[in-house]
């Protein structure tokens, strides 16, 4: 494994499988009465969140604590983007505190990359979501969740639906699922697919109904309501009709197919309650699995002793 996890592309197939297998082992800890391992005792993990994301922060915090690491939560809302303390000064502060790993969430694409390559800090950098770039641990937990239900993901068909253009989750998932041998199809209105998507290691389609019947898993992306003003689609109603996962489409989806969503959901917009809460939905599992996968990432990056 590389020293940092900035992009899902940093993971080779062997790396990715190692993370997933390690996460399986560590998941067993979560089933015990005492949910704690001594592996990272004395190590310091900083959660550096320039952007609000309670669920991701809590997930990383739980992961680090279950490995006995010291956790510092650094909520730096108001980065240099809004003329607060600069990324550099924040980084130097963390370095002075002796951070072994910095988990960073930032609204600017590439901010974790800057932290990792600028020489400001010496520890490992874990990208916990940067702008519209990547969110590699989300992709890992999605793969982990799918693998638990579907077995190895080789040749499995995964459909990712929605605002791919602005989605870091989609970017990381395409890269990781491709590495793991799955076939990914992105489905979105043409306005929400990035320029150059034809060069990505996946397929792209505009018509959800034509691809659903062959899916092994379908991942619904959150649609930001503010996209509407920017003419990406005419109305919420039209979006829901053409790209939402609703009762009619559930009938077309194979019985064994999984429904995923990275959250937070816009119920009634990209996904109906029926789909989100139904038997095929693994959305709540995704959250639980997030802790195991992040434990594995921290464990492998910080080179802790064998999990017991």
């Amino acid at each position: 494994m590389k020293r940092h996890l900035l992009s899902a592309a940093d993971l080779s197939r062997d790396d990715a499988l190692l993370v997933l297998d390690t996460a399986e082992e560590l998941a067993r800890v979560s089933d015990r009465a005492v949910k704690k391992l001594p592996t990272l005792r004395g190590r310091t993990v900083v959660n550096l969140f320039f952007e609000d994301s309670t669920r991701t922060r809590i997930s990383f915090e739980a992961a680090a604590k279950r490995l006995s690491a010291d956790v510092i939560n650094f909520s730096a809302k108001g980065s240099s983007l809004s003329k607060g303390e600069s990324l550099k000064d924040t980084a130097l502060t963390l370095e002075a505190m002796g951070a072994d790993a910095v988990v960073v969430r930032h609204s600017a694409s590439g901010a974790p990359h800057r932290l990792a390559t600028s020489g400001w800090i010496g520890g490992s950098v874990v990208n916990a979501g940067d702008g519209t770039h990547e969110h590699p641990t989300q992709a890992l937990l999605d793969a982990f969740t799918m693998r638990r239900h579907l077995g190895p993901l080789t040749d499995r068909r995964v459909i990712i639906v929605g605002d791919v253009l602005h989605s870091r989750v989609a970017r990381s998932n395409v890269l990781l699922l491709h590495t793991l041998g799955a076939e990914v199809t992105l489905v979105a209105p043409p306005t929400l697919l990035p320029v150059g998507v034809e060069t990505w290691p996946c397929a792209a389609a505009y018509d959800l109904d034509s691809v659903l019947p062959k899916a092994d898993a379908v991942m619904m992306l959150r649609v930001q309501r503010e996209r509407m003003g920017a003419a990406y689609f005419p109305s919420v109603r039209e979006y829901s009709r053409r790209y939402g996962l609703h009762a009619g489409r559930l009938g077309v989806l194979p019985e064994h197919a999984l429904i995923l969503h990275p959250g937070p959901m816009n119920r009634g917009l990209e996904i109906t309650a029926e789909a989100a809460d139904g038997a095929r939905s693994v959305i709540v599992e995704q959250v639980a699995n997030g802790v195991s996968v992040r434990m594995a990432v921290l464990y492998l990056l910080l080179g802790g002793s064998e999990p017991g």
Binding site: S109, G131, T132, H133, R168, R171, G196
Partner: peptide, 18 residues
């Protein structure tokens, strides 16, 4: 806009300048 719009801007998640 942050960089040239093309395959790379899509991959890097930086808004394109077409």
């Amino acid at each position: 806009a942050q960089m040239n719009e093309g395959e790379l801007s899509g991959r890097l998640g930086l808004r394109g300048w077409p």
